[in-house]
Design a binder for these strands. Structure first.
Lengths: 248, 248
DNA sequence: TGCCGGCCTTGATCTGCGTCAAGGCGACGG
DNA sequence: CCGTCGCCTTGACGCAGATCAAGGCCGGCA
């Protein structure tokens, strides 16, 4: 809907907002033109549910700005976050009618959407799009498995440290800074959302953040901004071996 | 290496052992012939580590018979299973040199392998192979996310029930039986392996299995065989809503 | 300016699961 | 036939994190 403006996105997106890593990294001009035709923008407010699990999804999309979460819920209300969507992440899947998870905006979100049917058509015509999508999906799968180790085997303190480290790495990957030295990240999640990410309660999250602050591993600026004086120290707390992730 | 023998595999594999769902579902005869050239079989014994995390992987493969697991380990020995490979499952990824996880044979395993480089080449030439692989990877991602809900939010009892239900569903999908009524499944995992799957200890696994048996939800035949008198009851214990999974 | 609502922190207590420890069962080899 | 070894079960106890409860901070709004 919105006309496309010249904002920067991520390194490999260049100036055109649809050049996000999801789809266009290797597109030819005519392919980009075709994508252009089926693309539109949507904005969502913080807290809004973009998509309910089970709903029809007639588009695929990628996040331009903001943060959204994928969550699953049990009948009794227990909920678990199963994906964290940061700028340049892709959501939705070609070939599937219905959304398997709730997608919820954690902050105000701008999405770049493509109508699903024509997108699928385009995929058939341009194999490198599905190859790119395969690579991305494999990366997501790796991230999900890293996360499974976190959920199954890490202590509360390690979980918090891991979450901060993961977001910091992603953040830095986007800005192409090295993940060392003093770092400031923006963590736009409520304590409850973090708890849902980590399989904890919000009280435990709060306590462990306080503990990490007390121990000098992190510092807080306001409510949502975290300073990491020493990234190595944080990684040690996270219990990750070596570089601890495949997100670069 | 081995010459290809006429054993049955799974429904969609037909009689040719390389027609597993991973690669060949839509292959033309000439494509099959090319696959045939780069394919070989390997067997592994129960307990053997097929691949160490970080090792070079010069093949991709799919499981013909037996069960294998993907596991991650922390330096201090805590381990978490992140994938369960049953017959027809695919392992390895085109485009990545090194294996991200340990792959361990839970039972004796027969794998159908393809040399990686020529396989990648073949993928470039036949787009439907990468499309098929994308579908499979998306399914795996869904399964991983289901599993994250299990790890993060379910109780020990629910975890055990879920594991049994998942394996039963997979088992039945392969044999195309309906998942209702009295069912017998073979669960070829030690208590310790189950614990690593579920983020528990082996003692807790043992206790919860005993409890489910005491409560009539399951019955045991020998050590590794489980009878499910009422699948609905099991699903209720697992805390899954409705059909509780995307594995059909 | 003061009230209200959302979000966060902290304390007290409870409990599910982990930890430690002892022993049982079945397979296999001598 | 018995000893050994791998795997499983069961019990006693402790603790990390959940639960319940009270109150603090801050921004929006009348």
């Amino acid at each position: 809907m919105t006309q496309h403006q010249p904002f920067r996105l991520t390194q490999d997106c260049g100036d055109c907002p649809i050049r996000h890593r999801a789809v266009c990294a290797r597109c030819e001009p005519d392919e980009l033109a075709r994508l252009e035709e089926i693309k539109y923008y949507r904005t969502f407010e913080a807290g809004q549910t973009l998509i309910w699990a089970g709903d029809r999804m007639d588009f695929v999309a990628s996040v331009v700005t903001g943060v959204a979460t994928l969550t699953q819920t049990m009948e009794d209300g227990r909920t678990q976050m199963v994906g964290l969507l940061l700028p340049s992440d892709f959501v939705g899947r070609p070939g599937r009618e219905r959304a398997p998870y709730n997608v919820i905006a954690a902050t105000d979100v701008l999405m770049c959407c493509f109508r699903r049917k024509p997108f699928e058509e385009l995929m058939r015509l341009t194999p490198h799009i599905s190859q790119r999508l395969l690579e991305m999906t494999l990366d997501e799968l790796d991230a999900a498995r890293e996360w499974m180790l976190l959920l199954g085997r890490k202590t509360a303190r390690e979980k918090i440290a891991s979450l901060i480290a993961i977001v910091a790495r992603r953040d830095q990957a986007l800005r192409l800074r090295a993940p060392s030295g003093r770092t400031v990240i923006d963590l736009p999640l409520t304590r409850e959302a973090m708890a849902d990410y980590l399989g904890l309660t919000l009280e435990t999250v709060s306590r462990q953040i306080s503990a990490l602050k007390r121990d000098g591993v992190i510092e807080l600026q306001g409510m949502r901004s975290i300073v990491i004086p020493d990234f190595r120290a944080l990684q040690d707390e996270a219990g990750d071996d070596a570089d601890g992730g495949f997100l670069a």
